[in-house]
Amino acid sequence: MKDFILKRMAAIILPFICVYGFYVILHGHVSPGGSFAGGIIVGLSLIAYSTIYGIAKGRAKLPEKVLVWTESYGTLWYGLMGMVGIVKGVPFLANKLAGVNLGNPGTLSSGGLISLIGFGVGIRVASTMVTLFFTMMEE
């Protein structure tokens, strides 16, 4: 009962922090921040969850296997997005050259593949931060 306020507040705030992190990840090309900063925000929201509700509960939500998978396939996602260019016959990581429609400047779609690539990187950064946290706490 003693952490009542903390837990209630966290329950209200943490989802928004997490969503904000994804917002920063996806809007890296039109606003300050980007996949690394956004990934850190997502990771920190998860770390805050585990510190407030206890490591065991955090671990139950994010078992090691899940973290390993997001970490590995987040990066592989980056590689696959890079391969779009190669499949289309233009260099690795090509964006406009690969025929991706770049919409109006200043909007989310104006980055083409960048926000998709950033999504993979952000997920990887978030899960790395969480893995580091758990490793340090469980040592």
Partner: peptide
Amino acid sequence: DLPVFVVIAPLFVAFVLPT
């Protein structure tokens, strides 16, 4: 694309290896 493949192939295999 060979110059980029020799670099990224080991890297991306390394990334999925932990799974």
